[in-house]
Design a binder for these strands. Structure first.
Length: 197
DNA sequence: AAGACTTTCAACCGCTGCTAG
DNA sequence: GCTAGCAGCGGTTGAAAGTCT
């Protein structure tokens, strides 16, 4: 509580949301010097951020090839397939989705897929109460078969599991618009080009 | 209209593995 | 072989936005 920072540098480390100025500084610096040792980069660029924070901001948000906005049904399917294969290896999964970051995929999984998994569990629980014998056989074979629990999850979320057999009807409020509450990346990059030398 | 509740996602934290000295 | 510093990863948090009552 009354603990004081060890030195003045530590006291100056900024946390929390990035400002537009900070974004511009980072973009401008990387455009001129390239990515490097992040701690050094943060200091050299004059940012009062940790190298870790700079790296995260760059990789998850500022990189020009980062795709923002809605995840397509194809991407949803791929995420589910790869998650079934590798589990929570988000960075590995992200490598197969160009322009998507591990953080984005992780958030997508936790907020959308996991939510529907719970709903589906509740739903199948209700069904199983009604069709106990039949469903017990099916779920047992899924969970104990070659694929194990992971396959059961994929089975639960395969397109054929939903009415209409189409990912377009995959339940849930998948967004159709990109975020508007943030400054446009094109603005930042055009400003960078104006400032850059 | 406004307060309560829910959802989303950017950012932080702690841990692990790698590598240079 | 040991150690320190760094990058990267996955889990978690909290603020803001959106929705409901």
């Amino acid at each position: 509580m009354d603990k004081k920072p060890c030195n003045s540098q530590e006291a100056e480390v900024r946390k929390g949301p990035w400002t537009m100025e900070e974004d511009l500084i980072l973009i401008n610096y990387i455009a001129n010097h390239g990515e490097g040792v992040w701690n050094t980069l943060a200091r050299s660029a004059g940012l009062k951020r940790t190298g870790k924070s700079c790296r995260l901001r760059w990789l998850n948000y500022l990189r020009p090839d980062v795709r923002r906005g809605n995840i397509t049904p194809e991407e949803q399917l791929l995420i589910m397939e790869l998650h079934a294969k590798w589990g929570n290896r988000w960075s590995k999964i992200a490598k197969h989705l160009p322009g998507r970051t591990d953080n984005e995929i992780k958030n997508f999984w936790r907020t959308r897929i996991q939510k529907h998994m719970k709903q589906a569990e509740t739903f199948t629980g209700q069904i199983s109460e009604q069709n106990d014998d039949h469903h017990h056989q099916a779920s047992t074979s899924q969970l104990c078969g070659g694929g194990g629990v992971v396959d059961a999850v994929v089975e639960t979320y395969s397109p054929s599991s939903y009415p209409g057999n189409d990912l377009e009807t995959f339940p849930g409020p998948f967004p159709t618009e990109s975020n508007d509450n943030i400054w446009c990346m094109e603005d930042l990059w055009s400003m960078q080009l104006l400032n850059g030398d």
